[in-house]
Simulated assay, not measured.
Amino acid sequence: MSTTTVRDRSRGAMARAESRQALGFVSPALAGLALFTIVPVVLSIVMAFFNWPTYGEKTFVGFDNYIKLFSSSPDFWPALRNTAVFTLLYVPLNVVLALVLALSLHSRIRGRAALRILFFLPVVTPMVANVLVWKMLLQPQGLFNSASQSWFGVELPNFLADPQWAMIMVVTMSVWQGLGYNMLIFSAALEQLPDSVIEAARIDGAKGLRMIWSITIPLVSPSVFFASIMTMIGALQVFAQPQLLTGGGPGNSTQPLVQFIYNQGFKFQELGLAAAAAWILFAIIIVLTALQFGAQKKWVHYEH
């Protein structure tokens, strides 16, 4: 047997041993992925075609769950509308305010590192704590109403009990909660701007808003695109803020689609209907994400 053959066999044996070791290391993660992601996803696909109560007999109904959602479910369309309203308000406000904040903190102002930490704190603070603080502030006996009466003699409306104000308060609280994440992304992108392009633009006379609009924003557009995609996906899946702040009320004026899914599955024990609604939400997210990826060619500028 030649020396080359021995070496090849030795390398093959070592490669197989390394593969077995690697599989051993990743097997816990693969088991967790299968148990907590793949199996539930497959099960939810199956459940969507059944009348699946929590207890009792499961009955195959085909597409009846989907038909019921679109034709006879009284809360589905309002939940879909609330999700759309929340997304249309939350995403632009979050992205635009985060970009403005990042641009402001990009300038050489004193204490900008501390300010970035301050604005990022709500992101890492537990959601429940944030919502409870906002709920106390917005109550008729809360700080906002007390301050308004003391300083201006004006009594504020009951924001969380008024259908015209409840969704606005949910959006406001959510923007405050998530603003720092996108601000940090934009701040990192601004720190990486090529100095040569900035200097060339300044030599050509660009400054102020013209510099920001024509040079800075196109250069950070990949980060804006990423933030828009992730913020939109998060907004379409909003649950904790309305659940904890308003309970979906008053009435169902702030109940989003995920809360509707939660109620159908765990409150009314209609797991099949909840699974069907979840897959409708998944389809909406996929379609909107695909549309954004298709439109990025018109406004996202990548360096080559």
Rank of each mutant, 00 (worst) to 15 (best):
L179C: 04
I168C: 07
L160A: 01
S221R: 05
L137N: 01
M167Q: 05
W134C: 01
Y181R: 10
L143N: 13
P140C: 12
V175T: 12
V197Y: 00
L179G: 10
M169T: 04
L219K: 00
P163H: 03
M136Y: 15
N158V: 05
M211P: 00
L184R: 09
P140Q: 09
M169D: 11
V171K: 02
S221C: 02
L190T: 05
P222G: 07
G153R: 13
S174A: 15
L184T: 14
S214A: 14
E155P: 00
Y181K: 03
L190E: 12
S187I: 13
S150K: 14
Q177C: 05
I198V: 07
I215G: 10
R210F: 10
M167T: 05
A189G: 09
V133Q: 01
S150N: 11
S150F: 13
I198M: 03
I203C: 00
G153K: 08
G208N: 00
E191V: 01
V171H: 00
S146C: 01
G142V: 07
I168F: 13
Q192S: 14
K207E: 03
I198L: 09
L219R: 06
A188I: 06
M136F: 12
Q139P: 00
R210I: 03
S148L: 03
L209F: 07
V175R: 05
A166T: 08
E155M: 11
P194W: 12
L143K: 06
Q139M: 15
K207M: 01
A166P: 13
F159K: 04
P194E: 02
E199T: 06
I185K: 00
A200W: 04
S214M: 05
G205N: 12
S148W: 02
Q177V: 01
E199Q: 01
I212V: 15
L190V: 12
E191T: 11
Q149V: 11
V154H: 09
G208L: 03
K135Q: 15
T216A: 00
F159Y: 12
V171F: 06
P218F: 05
S187F: 05
L137F: 15
V154P: 03
I185G: 03
D162S: 09
W213V: 13
G180I: 11
L193V: 09
G153S: 01
G178F: 11
